Simulated assay, not measured.
Amino acid sequence: MQKQRLISPFAPYSRRRTSNVIRLGLASFTRSDVYHFLLTLSWLNFLLLVSVVFLATNALFGLLYLCGGDCLANARSGSFLDSFFFSVHTIATVGYGSIYPKTDYANWIVTLESLVGIVGTAMITGLVFARFSLPTARVLFSKVAVISPYNGIPTLMFRTANERHNLIVEAQIGVTLVHNETTNEGHFMRRFYDLELVRKRSPVFALSWTVMHPIDASSPLYNATPESLQAEDAQLVISLTGIDETVSQTIHASHIFTADEILWDVRFVDILSLTENGFRRVDYRRFHDVEPVGLSNK
């Protein structure tokens, strides 16, 4: 009997995003996606897009003024530049006054352009404010996760740190193991298993947090090996949420560890120490460093 292959909506789960997933039967872009698209553009691309729309709009109205013939006082006959710059003065409400409409046709175009200018200015102002006020997280994750003994139990560990000099209040972190499975009926699936953590909540996340999952008999990683994780295309999906104390808004951060980023029989070097004055010191230069189990931290 030929095995039936059922593809989960999450398979394959890319390393950082699902852009390599081919989605059939869904609209690629809708009107409701425009706002999301404008918020997620980089600042450079956003400013370039605004500039192109501004120039194109004024060029269009400049052509409309040209179509009206000699409808602008003090403008050179047939001059696109005069019509274009008059459009810029109108839509930006500059109003230098050297060129002005002298026909009903020109006044109606000015009325329409003024309306477009008011609406456009309001929309761009709202987008700029939304982009500035969008809450973002600066959370650092270690480049690798490690599996090493902790209190005699093999334990999965990775580090995360708050890169800002403030607090993330009520921080919560979740770790999910994602890997391929084939059922007894021969169905291929991408399965998700939540991992139990030693501590999944931090009331105040300020410096560094080592997240730990003990690999006991109840763990989905029990009896796992580097080879089995590679064969199953295993990934650890990390999700962190909390409240930024500065803006009092919820922030999100995520990360993915692939199977080759999970190191065995090594541990993270110690980055916490005390100065002679009694201050705590965190050496983020060694945040990603690991050493074989059995060596003393230096």
Rank of each mutant, 00 (worst) to 15 (best):
K3Q: 13
R5Y: 11
L6N: 09
L6T: 12
L6P: 00
I7G: 02
R16E: 12
T18H: 05
R23S: 10
L24F: 14
S28K: 12
T30L: 10
R31C: 09
Y35G: 08
H36Y: 05
F37A: 15
L39Y: 09
L41V: 07
L47R: 12
L48I: 15
L48H: 03
V50P: 01
L55T: 10
A59E: 02
L66P: 00
G68C: 02
G69E: 04
G69W: 01
A73I: 00
N74T: 01
G78K: 06
H89D: 15
H89M: 13
H89I: 01
H89W: 07
T93V: 15
Y96H: 09
Y100C: 00
D104R: 10
Y105Q: 03
A106W: 00
N107H: 12
I109C: 02
V110G: 04
T111W: 05
L112I: 15
E113R: 03
E113N: 14
G117V: 06
I118S: 07
A122D: 06
T125K: 05
T125A: 14
G126H: 05
V128T: 11
V128G: 02
F129G: 01
A130G: 05
V139F: 06
S148Y: 07
Y150K: 14
T155Q: 09
M157L: 11
T160P: 01
N166A: 07
L167V: 15
I168P: 00
I168A: 04
E170M: 11
A171M: 09
V175L: 11
L177G: 05
V178P: 00
T182C: 10
T183V: 03
N184W: 11
E185I: 01
H187W: 08
F192L: 13
E196H: 08
E196Y: 02
R201W: 13
A206G: 05
S218T: 12
P220S: 02
P220N: 02
Y222S: 07
Y222E: 10
T225E: 07
T225W: 11
P226Y: 04
S228V: 10
L229R: 04
Q230Y: 08
D233H: 14
L236W: 03
V237E: 05
L240G: 06
T241S: 11
E245F: 03
E245Q: 15
S248A: 12
T250W: 05
H252P: 01
T258L: 04
T258I: 10
A259K: 09
I262L: 14
L263T: 06
L263H: 06
W264R: 08
D270S: 13
S273P: 00
E276R: 14
N277W: 10
F279Q: 14
V282R: 13
Y284W: 12
F287A: 12
F287H: 10
H288I: 00
V290Y: 01
V293K: 06
G294N: 05
S296M: 11
N297W: 10
K298W: 09
